[in-house]
């Protein structure tokens, strides 16, 4: 299958390893990945901060760049939720067919074992836009359970928001920090050495908190674990 990668501006600039890992996983499974270099940003930050007028041209641009592909994959539930949830109101009916990575693998390609090996104690945080925005269910966990040598530990209060929320983390920095503090406590309670998720935005937020606490827990995008071969 020929799949276009929508890497997202955040991954492109701040978490390129999530994009690289996405390519590696799909190519290992025998798919052709293309990267339309015209892509920039889906406009989520503008839309969710109240600038629908500025988001609309970005959405139309996105629809032009990705319109010709049968399937588009993205290692970001949040940006996929933006396209699926808000684009109909911004660009009309020509919304490209975008899938979040775990959704593409499990629901579209029918793959739960991607042939990965990762010998670490890992806890998984389901991000809000993956869990509730896209309804990913346990697709990410099914992928993780099939990773060899992994020790998966359940995250307490997993379904509670980490407190990122885009502009929320800035406009309501104190409340966001209080939410993050609780999330960090839950992560540390698992004794995991890796915290993973399907959104680099949440991981930058959680990872920044873990580094500040010098907790010795790393954050890795789900794609990076799936790409790992030990």
């Amino acid at each position: 299958m020929r799949i276009a990668l929508f890497v997202t501006c955040l991954n492109d600039t701040f978490a390129p390893s999530a994009g690289r890992a996405t390519v590696e996983v799909l190519e290992r499974l025998g798919h052709e990945v293309v990267f339309p270099e015209e892509q920039t940003c889906c406009g989520q930050m503008h839309a969710n901060t109240g600038y629908a007028d500025l988001a609309a041209p970005l959405a139309r641009r996105f629809a032009r760049v990705f319109g010709g592909f049968d399937a588009v994959v993205s290692p970001s539930a949040s940006c996929v939720a933006m396209v699926r949830g808000q684009y109909p109101g911004l660009v009309g009916e020509t919304v490209p067919n975008v899938y979040e990575l775990s959704e593409l693998l499990v629901d579209v390609l029918g793959v739960e074992d991607v042939g990965a090996t990762f010998a670490h104690r890992v806890t998984y945080h389901p991000t809000c836009h993956g869990l509730r925005g896209l309804g990913l269910g346990d697709a990410p966990l099914r992928l993780l359970r099939n990773v060899r040598e992994i020790e998966l530990v359940e995250l307490p209060e997993a379904e509670t928001c980490c407190g990122f929320g885009g502009t929320f983390a800035v406009k309501n920095a104190d409340t966001s920090a209080a939410m993050l503090t609780d999330k960090l406590r839950c992560v540390l309670d698992t004794g995991a050495d890796v915290c993973t998720a399907g959104d680099s935005s949440c991981l930058l937020h959680i990872g920044g908190g873990l580094r500040r606490q010098r907790a010795g827990v790393r954050t890795l995008h789900l794609a990076e674990i799936l790409a790992s071969t030990g």
């Binding site: 991954n11 600039t13 390893s17 994009g19 935005s201 990872g207 580094r211």
Partner: peptide, 20 residues
């Protein structure tokens, strides 16, 4: 925006040298 003012509880994200 989300990348600014990372307040007191988190380290700021570091942009790697090479983009995707």
């Amino acid at each position: 925006g989300p990348l600014r003012t990372w307040s007191g509880v988190r380290e700021p994200p570091q942009a790697p040298r090479r983009t995707f």
